[in-house]
Computed example of a mutant assay.
Amino acid sequence: MTTPCSTTTTRTRTTARFLLLGDSHAGCVGRAAQAADLPFVGGPVGSGRDFLGPFFDTGGTGGTEGTRGTGGTGGTESTGNGEITFRSPEAQRLYREFLDALEVAALAGLPVPLVCTFGLSAHTVATRQNWDVHRDTHGTLPEEFLRSGLFAGLVRATVRGALAFYDHTAALGLRVLAPLPPQRVPGMSDAQVFFAAQEVIRAELAARGVEIVDLRARVTDASGLQRPAFSQTDDTIHGNLAFGRLVVAELLDRGL
């Protein structure tokens, strides 16, 4: 999955309302904020799968990535000032540009809320072939499996890098808001896993103090899938500008 829009930034610390970090699902949020003349800094810094497994380190030099157990407690302490370094050179370059635009040296000094989509590419977690071993003789995934601790543990392991990131923002005391992704399930993904995994991820983020921006009741049909009016027409994954506008409106309602 590629990033479908260019990085968007607003270059004034005193007027920026939030920092936007994420995968390609952050693109429509940035475009909607631009269209509304809402000042912000940031944009997509990679694709969805880039932010599931370990993708950053903490500490000024040679720090360790903070991780927590399945319950979201405990963990590895950050070293130095706790600043993160993305393992992807391009993501790191963009991240540093964003902080420079906000005139801060580290995430710990962030003067505005963080809007983030890391770990929320549920369609990637739901890649069909990854779950074939758990199917019954009819080729379906039993509901009891999807509700099991085993399933939840597998999802947490899949998105462990994103969970570590939210552990880190929680330790820094940042205000973080995470928009749930468009409810779109491409052919490569299993819809049962998509919806079940999304609930596991949502609960894990909420347990870390992340504010979930959940627009499902406003953008889906009876099947739970995203309506065409809020879907990008040239792909099977992303939300469109109308969806981004709803996210931005919700952010404003929450005081951003």
Results as ranks from 00 to 15, higher is better:
170 A>C: 08
130 N>A: 11
168 H>E: 11
178 A>T: 08
138 H>Y: 07
133 V>M: 05
168 H>R: 13
165 F>T: 07
161 G>D: 09
89 P>L: 04
110 L>S: 11
121 S>C: 10
113 P>Y: 04
102 L>F: 03
170 A>K: 12
148 S>D: 10
178 A>S: 15
123 H>I: 00
93 R>N: 14
88 S>Q: 08
177 L>Y: 07
133 V>F: 02
150 L>Q: 13
110 L>I: 12
123 H>S: 15
104 V>W: 07
90 E>F: 00
88 S>E: 09
91 A>G: 12
159 V>N: 03
175 R>V: 15
110 L>M: 11
138 H>M: 09
82 G>F: 04
113 P>G: 12
162 A>N: 03
144 E>P: 03
175 R>E: 15
182 P>L: 02
98 F>G: 10
119 G>I: 06
147 R>P: 02
151 F>Y: 07
81 N>F: 04
124 T>F: 01
137 T>Y: 01
130 N>C: 02
131 W>M: 00
138 H>R: 14
103 E>R: 14
95 Y>G: 14
83 E>V: 05
88 S>P: 10
142 P>T: 01
183 Q>E: 14
99 L>Y: 06
145 F>A: 03
120 L>G: 04
119 G>T: 08
80 G>S: 11
154 L>Q: 13
181 P>R: 00
107 L>T: 08
150 L>V: 10
100 D>V: 05
120 L>Q: 14
96 R>V: 15
177 L>G: 02
109 G>C: 03
135 R>Q: 07
136 D>R: 00
172 L>P: 04
113 P>A: 07
170 A>D: 12
164 A>Q: 03
167 D>L: 06
181 P>A: 12
121 S>T: 14
162 A>P: 12
150 L>N: 04
174 L>N: 06
116 C>H: 05
99 L>F: 06
119 G>E: 09
167 D>K: 00
152 A>L: 09
181 P>E: 08
179 P>A: 02
129 Q>N: 14
90 E>P: 00
93 R>H: 14
113 P>D: 10
121 S>E: 13
